[in-house]
Each structure stands twice: as structure tokens, then as C-alpha cells.
């Protein structure tokens, strides 16, 4: 079943939307899967708001296709939520920590790595003038 949403470019609008989406996943998906989608979706939408177009009139679309076995989330924006090269060149050590060098531990930059870890598939799709970040999570 297809569910379509739209939110303004406002960080405060993200969590309520994500909670609406994860509510749709009950009861087919367990709590771990719902938590994973919650985190990945919040990270992806936050990226879109923070790094996408600054034109506040352009909302962000979300299409959710839910089956008994998987959920697919298309985040639809006029600009990529994140540069494509970031996905292709994702550092496998992006989440590593050196406890002896906390001074240089980054405070940001973990969002994309978390999205990839939470999802079974992450891909970009370009359709007309839209960019879609497609996140897929299977049960």
C-alpha cells in the first residue's frame, strides 16, 4: 500500500512524520525494525532539511510503500539530500572511536553511516527534476 506525505523544511516536523510512518509498520514489523526505520528516516529527512535547498517554500515529499515483508521509503526533494559521492565513498570506519583521542572525535557526520547500517538497501533515483533517496528495510 502506498502512503504519501509532505513536510515543510522544518526540523521540528521530522519526528512526528517518522512516528506516523513507524506506526504504519505495526504489527508486521518488530520493534527493532521500526526503530531502525525511525532512525534512518529521521537522519535522511534531517539531511534534506539541513543540506538541501534553502527555498523554504519547497516542501519535502515522502512516499512509503508497505508490504508484509518490506517497507520502502522514497524521500523526494528538488536537490539531493546528500551528495551522491558520500554514499559511494562511505567510510567503513565512519563510526569508529579512538578513546585515546577524544579531542579529535567528530561531533557530526554519522548520519549517512547510520542510514546505511539501518537499511537493507539505500539508493538514489533521479526522476525528471526530482531526486529520490530510496531506503528499503525488510523484515
Amino acid at each position: 500500500m502506498l502512503h504519501s506525505f509532505s513536510i515543510p523544511r522544518d526540523l521540528a516536523a521530522i519526528s512526528p512524520l517518522s512516528q506516523s510512518v513507524t506506526a504504519l509498520m505495526v504489527p508486521a514489523f518488530d520493534q527493532d525494525a521500526r526503530d531502525a526505520v525511525d532512525l534512518a528516516l529521521v537522519e535522511a529527512l534531517s539531511n534534506a532539511v539541513q543540506h538541501g535547498t534553502k527555498d523554504s517554500a519547497k516542501s519535502i515529499g515522502l512516499e512509503v510503500v508497505l508490504t508484509e515483508t518490506e517497507i520502502t521509503l522514497d524521500i523526494i526533494d528538488s536537490t539531493p539530500p546528500m551528495p551522491l559521492f558520500l554514499l559511494e565513498d562511505l567510510d567503513p570506519d565512519a563510526l569508529e572511536v579512538d578513546p585515546d583521542d577524544l579531542e579529535n572525535l567528530p561531533e557530526t557526520g554519522r548520519g549517512l553511516a547510520l542510514i546505511v547500517m539501518m537499511m537493507d538497501e539505500v539508493a538514489f533515483h533521479h526522476i525528471d527534476d526530482q531526486t529520490r533517496l530510496r531506503l528499503t528495510r525488510r523484515r
Binding site: S15, D38, L39, V42, E43, S46, L102, E103, L105, P106, E107, T108, R110, G111, L114
Partner: peptide, 19 residues
Amino acid sequence: SFVDSSALGALIAAAKRLA
């Protein structure tokens, strides 16, 4: 019940200040 990477960054900032 939920923390994202941006909020996590605030925790890291505190940990670094008190390291």
C-alpha cells in the same frame, strides 16, 4: 526513547569538554 546523530553530537561535545 529516541536519539539521533545530531543529539548524539551534543553528548559527544559534553564528553569532550569533560574528558
